[in-house]
Simulated scan of single mutants.
Amino acid sequence: MRWSMLLVLLLAPVLHGCRHSDSAVRPEASQEEGVRPKGGSASARIWVLISKGQFVEAEALIAEGTRSGLIATATAQKMLEKIAVLNTKLGEIPARLQRAPDFPSQLKDFTCFQIESMLKAGDYSLAPQAQLRMAVKLIEQQSRLMEK
Rank of each mutant, 00 (worst) to 15 (best):
W3I: 04
M5V: 13
L6K: 15
L7M: 14
V8Y: 07
L10M: 13
L11H: 07
A12F: 15
H16K: 11
C18Y: 02
C18Q: 07
C18D: 14
R19G: 10
H20Y: 10
S21I: 01
S21F: 01
D22P: 14
D22N: 08
S23W: 01
V25A: 10
P27F: 03
P27G: 11
S30D: 10
Q31M: 08
E32G: 11
G34F: 04
S41A: 15
S41K: 10
A42S: 13
A42C: 15
R45C: 12
I46K: 09
W47D: 01
V48L: 12
L49M: 10
S51D: 14
G53Q: 08
F55G: 11
E59I: 00
E59N: 13
L61K: 02
L61Y: 03
I62G: 15
I62A: 12
A63Q: 15
E64P: 00
E64V: 01
G65R: 12
R67S: 11
R67D: 08
R67C: 02
T73I: 12
T73M: 10
T73S: 14
A74N: 07
T75H: 11
A76D: 05
A76Y: 02
A76Q: 07
Q77R: 12
K78N: 10
I83A: 10
G91R: 07
G91W: 07
I93F: 05
P94W: 07
L97D: 12
Q98C: 07
D102S: 11
F103T: 03
Q106I: 11
L107E: 04
L107T: 06
L107G: 07
L107C: 08
L107S: 07
D109E: 15
F110L: 15
T111A: 07
C112K: 13
F113E: 00
F113Q: 11
Q114R: 08
Q114L: 02
I115V: 09
S117W: 00
S117A: 15
S117K: 15
L119P: 00
K120N: 06
K120E: 09
A121V: 04
A121S: 11
G122E: 04
G122K: 04
G122Y: 01
D123Y: 02
S125V: 06
S125Q: 14
S125W: 01
S125C: 02
L126A: 08
L126P: 01
P128A: 02
P128S: 03
A130C: 03
A130F: 04
L132T: 09
L132K: 12
K137Q: 11
K137T: 06
L138D: 04
L138H: 08
E140T: 11
S143Y: 05
R144F: 02
E147Q: 15
